[in-house]
């Protein structure tokens, strides 16, 4: 059987598996955000960056190959992850005390796990348009990390193709596939996978104000 070495552990893999998939199957943790089992990975957040035979690569897109030496839990990679997380935080407006996703937010959890205490960089304080036009679902674009999970879930699971990512660099933003560009003019529902799959507080179901008390939330 073909194997890879993950931080020294010899792990078997099946043909076609990525490094991330083979680590998950072996219960070895590689921090990640935009990767979710069941969705095609595209390595946009880079949080799953590992060192494979001396080169940095995103574990979610890199195919596992026999004899690979993968480094995951090293000080160098911890610093890389910390920098990536800090950049994700400063590129958006992540005011956790005012966000309903707080406590269940995967960006927040990833930053806790890496021991992120400060931003280090200068916050951008972007001004992106909020979309509260729909009666049940709202979009706060300032919290979007462009993981594209909603894009894939809406297209591939819900069969509605409501979301897309548009623009480049600092102008990258989440767009809605309707004539007006507003969520109200789509057939999105609060039960859609595209809504549930958002790892941060960018797509939220309305009317659910801080339902779970602090201390009992997913990542408390």
């Amino acid at each position: 059987m073909k194997t890879v070495s993950l931080d020294g552990a010899v792990v078997p893999f099946a043909e076609g598996q990525t490094v991330m998939e083979c680590a998950l199957a072996a219960n070895i943790s590689i921090p990640h955000l935009c990767f979710l089992p069941g969705f095609l990975p595209h390595g946009s957040c880079r949080l799953c960056t590992v060192k494979i035979d001396g080169r940095l690569a995103s574990a979610c897109t890199q195919p596992a190959m026999a004899g690979q030496h993968v480094e995951i839990d090293t000080e160098e990679l911890r610093q890389v992850r910390l920098s990536l997380l800090r950049m994700l935080f400063v590129e958006g407006n992540h005011y956790c005390p005012a966000c309903e996703k707080s406590g269940s937010c995967r960006l927040q959890k990833a930053a806790y796990d890496e021991g992120m205490l400060d931003l280090h960089y200068r916050p951008w304080y972007p001004k992106r348009k909020m979309d509260a036009s729909h009666p049940d679902v709202l979009i706060d674009r300032d919290r979007c990390i462009f993981c594209e999970l909603c894009v894939k879930a809406s297209r591939d699971v819900d069969g509605k193709n409501i979301f897309g990512i548009s623009g480049r660099g600092i102008d990258t933003h989440l767009v809605v596939n309707s004539k007006s560009g507003l969520l109200a003019d789509t057939d999105i529902s609060a039960q859609d996978r595209a809504v549930e799959v958002c790892p941060v507080g960018a797509i939220l179901v309305k009317g659910r104000g801080f339902e779970i008390p602090i201390g009992k939330r997913l990542y408390d």
């Binding site: 400060d118 916050p123 304080y125 001004k127």
Partner: peptide, 18 residues
């Protein structure tokens, strides 16, 4: 020592930056 969310990222008062 920077103490608390507002010292670290501007916090709730920084929501006026919008």
């Amino acid at each position: 020592v920077a103490v608390g969310a507002c010292a670290i990222n501007g916090g709730i008062p920084a929501m006026r930056n919008h």
